[in-house]
Amino acid sequence: MSTELSNVPILQLQSIEVVYEKVILAVKDVSLSVAANSIVALLGANGAGKSTTLKAISGLAAAQRGEVVRGRVLYQGDDITQANPAALVQGGLVQVLEGRHCFAHLGVEENLITGALIKRPTASVLKQQLERIYHYFPRLKKLRKNLAGYASGGEQQMVAIGRALMAEPKLVLLDEPSMGLAPLVVEEIFDIIGNLNQQQGVSFLLAEQNASIALKYAHHGYVIENGRVAAHGTTQELKARSDLQALYLGI
């Protein structure tokens, strides 16, 4: 990890409440903080509000008729509660959606290119970016001309993460990266996440149901239950709490 840890967290949620379609209360009261250059895990059962929390941060909740009705989201100290996704991607905050959401009819490399479009890179910068992604995901280089729709689940997850990295983000919101993948592939993907964090200083906020793998790589963890933070602490602290283990962590 880089030594110059700034004091301002890269991301702060101050008791946000998120409502869909004006009536469906998805997140009641979530506060959390992501320190710069760290990996933070967001744990909890299906439907606890993890995805909604991430979408509220990235501005995608608004596109699905959701709204942050209370609280604030701060990114590098700035209030981004009402910001649109394009502006946030431009500023270095990108979400990788649950279920990967690759552009199935585009090639793998074209998928990656879409991630960089917002930055309007020159042709040579774009090429460097692609090489950087292929360095971290060598498998993708072999597949670059293939349609993303025909790639395996693990490869699609790599495409989705690689695509997000093309915008040179400072913070990546990762929603269920392990979903539907074989354990070995999950290890491979988390290894890459760990490397990106250490070598490039990218921060990650990752929502996971697979608590054991998430806590293996994260520095901090938050447990969400029914739209509220039920517990939080460093990974060591969370692992040590026997009450949590049975209830939420499944370790």
């Binding site: 995608l60 959401h101 552009f103």
Partner: peptide
């Protein structure tokens, strides 16, 4: 063109297109 890639991306998956910052 890049606009073309973006257009095809939007056609495939609007939410994902929004997520990567396509306007």
């Amino acid at each position: 063109t890049r606009t073309g890639i973006a257009l095809r991306a939007v056609a495939d998956d609007q939410l994902a297109a929004l997520a990567v910052g396509i306007r």
